Computed example of a mutant assay.
Amino acid sequence: MRKIYQYSALTLIAALSCVSSCKDEDRVIVPEWESGVHGLGEFAATTADVNFIKGDPSVDLTIDLLWNSIDHKNEVTKIDLYIAFNEAYTDPSGNPKTAKHGGDQGKLYSSMEGSTVPKDKAVTTFTISQNDVYALYKDDTYDYKEDGNQVPVWNNPDRPDRTTGDFKFVDGDAFQLKWVFTTADGRVFDKWGVSVCTEFPGANCSVNWAAVCSQTIKKPAGDWTINFVDSYGDGWNGAAIKVVVDGVGTDYTLDDGGEGKETVTVPDGTETLTFEYVSGDYDEEASFTIVSAKGNTIAKGGPSQAAGTLTLNLCKENE
Rank of each mutant, 00 (worst) to 15 (best):
R2D: 04
S8N: 09
A14Y: 15
C18I: 12
V19L: 14
S21P: 01
V28A: 02
A45E: 08
D49G: 06
N51T: 05
S58W: 14
I63P: 12
L65Y: 15
E75V: 12
Y82Q: 11
F85D: 01
A88V: 02
T90R: 14
G94W: 05
T98A: 11
T98V: 14
Y109K: 13
T116P: 14
V123K: 11
T125D: 15
D132N: 07
Y134S: 02
D139Y: 12
T141W: 04
Y142R: 01
V151H: 02
P157W: 00
D161A: 05
D161I: 01
T163D: 04
D166E: 10
D171Q: 06
A174M: 09
A174P: 15
A184F: 00
G186Y: 00
F189E: 03
K191F: 06
K191W: 06
C197L: 06
C197Y: 05
C197T: 01
T198D: 13
F200D: 04
G202V: 04
N204M: 12
V212I: 14
Q215K: 07
Q215H: 02
K218P: 00
P220S: 15
I226N: 00
F228I: 00
S231K: 06
A239M: 04
I241F: 01
V245H: 05
G247M: 00
G258K: 08
G260D: 10
V264Q: 00
P267D: 15
P267M: 14
V278E: 08
V278K: 14
S279K: 09
G301A: 11
N313F: 10
C315S: 12
